[in-house]
Amino acid sequence: MKLESMYQEIILDHYRSPHHKGLRDGFGAEVHHINPTCGDEVTLRVHLDDESQGEQAIIKDVSYESQGCSISQASASVLTDLVIGKNVAEAFAVHEAFLELMQSKGEAQGDEDVLEDAVAFAGVSKFPARVKCALLSWMALKDATAQALARSTQKETEQ
């Protein structure tokens, strides 16, 4: 297996200069996810414009602080590029596509129209030990978004 198939230049670029990194105020939910086998950690916040819109709510911002390998760092950076500005349903569809790519064991290429820079992770799917690294921030995003939405329904029922 060629190492370069995993460490694509795009991945290394995102790793060296991550996009949207840092925690920003004004968020609907914050989660902390870890990968206990390797110690990768991410704290991730999701800011939705209007939670009452449910899956139609727009993701205004995703901010994060993370610690981990190049794959997990680059993945978080690519994630923010992909989902900020999309509505929740669209973002979850991208998440689904990325998950599928990562579970493909090197068989899939990924749809560049949907996944953009994230197709560079196709090579990572050949390395089972690293798939978890690539998925860490995506799992955090899903969790945080679900929590933000749940919190708004909770608020409504309380009112």
């Binding site: 110690g39 990768d40 390998c69 190049s70 690294c133």
Partner: peptide, 26 residues
Amino acid sequence: EGLGEIHPHDVGQVLDEQGIAVRVGQ
């Protein structure tokens, strides 16, 4: 230089490519 600490996962992966088995993590 230029990057700082290389995460042990990445160190281990590139070593593996050269046939060198080390353990990385906690």
